[in-house]
């Protein structure tokens, strides 16, 4: 059985209609996806990963009413997963001092990064929507090519091509503006 966007989405919708077997199958399929998602972002700390996976499964179950059947399931899933990761570190951070926290919180760095983000938003708006979405997913939100592909419901090579073309177009535009 393949874990594609369509497959997961079909299971989710069956679960929403009250099919417990489909719901259980969905949650089981999510475990390796979520482990991969968190492992790539948290080095070491397997306990943390398993905690976050379980928290996310519980959230997927209790908050499933917020999934809109007309939209991509994986985008919803990773939004929940990302929130749970931030929440996890907020909770853990309160109990245990994090090294270099001050550096992370330096205000002017935050400011430059938000200004840069605004510029990026402006630039991305000029691209075809698909290229912009793929660049956002892989380069800004930190999804892997495979995750972005299944979120969009397209092939991995398609994602790579979109990102490549989009970046090339942006590069041309930025250089043109500087000249």
């Amino acid at each position: 059985m393949q874990t594609t966007e369509e497959h997961l989405r079909a299971l989710m919708i069956d679960g929403l209609d009250g099919d417990a077997a489909a719901h259980a199958a969905l949650l089981r399929l999510l475990v390796p996806l979520l482990r991969g998602f968190y492992r790539r972002r948290v080095r070491g700390a397997d306990d943390d990963v398993e905690d976050m996976v379980q928290d996310t499964l519980i959230a997927v179950h209790t908050r499933r009413a917020t999934y809109d059947r007309g939209r991509a399931f994986t985008a919803w899933l990773y939004a929940v997963a990302r929130y749970k990761m931030i929440d996890h570190f907020r909770r853990v951070g309160r109990l245990r001092p994090i090294d270099d926290l001050e550096e992370l919180l330096v205000a002017d760095e935050f400011e430059t990064s938000s200004i840069a983000k605004l510029d990026i938003d402006d630039l991305l708006e000029q691209l075809p929507p698909k290229q912009a979405r793929m660049i956002r997913a892989t380069r800004l939100e930190g999804l892997s090519v495979a995750e972005a592909a299944s979120a969009e419901g397209i092939g991995e090579s398609d994602v790579k091509i979109s990102v490549h073309r989009g970046l090339k177009a942006l590069m041309a535009r930025v250089q043109g503006a500087m000249r």
Binding site: A24, R28, I58, A65
Partner: peptide, 23 residues
């Protein structure tokens, strides 16, 4: 808790959710 047990427990409480349940 074991992740498999968790899934079993969650799935045992699969109630149908309406389309407009957020609203």
């Amino acid at each position: 808790m074991n992740t498999d047990d968790l899934i079993r427990q969650l799935a045992s409480d699969t109630r149908p959710v309406g389309r407009n349940s957020v609203a």
